[in-house]
Structure formats: C-alpha cells, structure tokens
Design a protein around this nucleic acid. Sequence first.
DNA 1: TTTATTTATATCGTTCACGATGCAAAGATA
DNA 2: TATCTTTGCATCGTGAACGATATAAATAAA
Lengths: 150, 150
Amino acid sequence: MGMQEQLKLNNQLCFRLYTASRLITQAYHPLLSGIGLTYPQYLVMMVLWEQDAQPVNDIAKKLYLETNTVTPLLKRMEAEGFISRSKGKADARQVIVNLTPKGRELESQASCIPFQLGEAVACRSITPETAPGLYGTLDDLIHTLSSAGR
Amino acid sequence: MGMQEQLKLNNQLCFRLYTASRLITQAYHPLLSGIGLTYPQYLVMMVLWEQDAQPVNDIAKKLYLETNTVTPLLKRMEAEGFISRSKGKADARQVIVNLTPKGRELESQASCIPFQLGEAVACRSITPETAPGLYGTLDDLIHTLSSAGR
DNA sequence: TTTATTTATATCGTTCACGATGCAAAGATA
DNA sequence: TATCTTTGCATCGTGAACGATATAAATAAA
C-alpha cells in the first residue's frame, strides 16, 4: 500500500526544470516590463538582434517552437512596433521578420539585463566553473528530446 | 557595432531551462493523454497521491504556483472526476481537495510513466552518477529564486 | 502541363501562467 | 463588541504553448 517512490515530486527532473524555468522567467519580468517585452518576446528579439531579416520558420526553429506559437507572438510584437513583417521575395510563402528602428534601439537598453538577472540568479551551485557543465547537460538533454520528437 | 555577447541565445541559462522544460513536457504528453491528464494536472495528482486531503494553498505551495493558477486547474480535474473539493471544517475559507476513487486508481496506471519517460530522456549527460548533482543545482536555483521573490 | 505532395504560415480551441483585483472568513486591535 | 488587517480562494484579462486543421505557394511526379 506504500506510495510509489518514482511518483514523488522530489524525484522528478521535469518538475525541477519546469519550476526553475518559471521562477527565472518571473525574475526577468520586472526587468523586461521596463522595456515593454514579455520573456518569449525577448527571446525573439535576441534572435533578431543576432541576425535581422529572418523568416518565421528560422526564428521558430532557433527557439524550438512551432509557428502556431510564434505567429501570434510576432503579431503582438508588430503591433507594439518592435518588428515588421513582409512577404518574402524569393519565396512568396515566407514571411520575413525585420527589426524596426525602435526594435533595434532596444538592444542597448536590454544589454544590462543579463547582468542584472545574473545577480538575482546568483547561488552557490552555479559558478563560472560549474555553469559550462550545467549548460552542456541541458544542451544534451535538449538535443536528445528535440531529435527524438521526429 | 558588434552584437552584444551577453544577449546571445546560446549564453542564456533561462532559455535552456525554458526549452528543456517544454520538450520534456512534450515527451510526457503521449503518456499522460493515455490516462487523461495534462502535465500540470499530473503534478497535482502526484502531490495528492503522496498525501490526500490537502487545502488548495498547500498544493499551490508545493508546486510553486499561485492559487489563481491552481483553482481553475482543480476545477477541470474535478469535472474529469479525478478529485473532489469541499469546504474546510476547521477553517471555512479553505477548500480541501480529495482524491476520488477514480483518482486513486490512477496511481497504479501512472506508476510506469517515470520509467517510460526515463527512456525518452536517456542521454549521456544524465546518468545515475550525474543526476544528483544536476538535481542539487536546480534545487539550489529554485530555492534562491523562490526566496528572493518575497 | 495537370495532378499530387510538400512546405511556410495562419487560424482555432483548450489549457496553462500570472498580474490585478474582489470577497468572505478568520484573527488582531481598539 | 466594533473595526482593521490578514489569509484563502476565486474571478478576470492577457499572453503564451500546442494539437489539430486550413490555405496558398512551391516542388515533384505523372
């Protein structure tokens, strides 16, 4: 009649990732709301700051999201004036996403966010020595899961 | 005019956690839909399997969620017949959540899920030797973030 | 060149998350 | 006791996520 050990919350990797993800996103909130972005919108902006003028699909792939998530996100960002969307010339099916001047200007305003966030996240388990190992593990996990799903 | 290095997606811990969390949840989906649960609902069930008859607030705290997320979740689970909700006797403000027989029966059906999931998540970076370290790091992060937010 | 298939994006419906706010019960203070 | 504050839960509105489906353009096959 004992509780199944493997069904305890404490033994779940996924629950930890889910919680850690939500809590970090919450920590971003006050910083991002200052520049008018949500966290997923901030991710899109980082993709575009790194390389402007990308089709929807390229953005979606880099974020491991589907277009049915990204399309409405981009529409809201267009309504806010951060990006513009235009038909692709080479391929008329594509929608090319461009930064507006307002969106481009945001990069310098956002540049301090990673540092501010770093202070909030500072804990003894994540140091310059241990971070690469953690990143590698998560990258490995993401790679396994994203390739398994096809 | 160079790209701000710290604003690159590859340098972001949060993006990794966000992606890993989503992809693992997706891996759960086919397993959970078989027993009629979503992933957050599965988390609630795990809390209740471990200890039945808890007030909403206790469940929310264990999942690091607010009641405005948990209440609608519980209502859907009640409509599906997995749980029942009743007024607390000692404190009339509380709503006590109980497993129904159907919800209790689900535990044995769910007991194989962690193993099935384990196979999907199997990658060289997460082994019986490395998992505790990863869990510890995430727990530390969660602790830091959840106590900072107050 | 038709016809069939794939690809790129969009639409729709449902379920989270979560900030803001409301409300009633409980507890504290006057 | 009457008033004030806190606590527990619910409601509302908005923005993701995502499965399922639709549509048009591009490509492949017949």
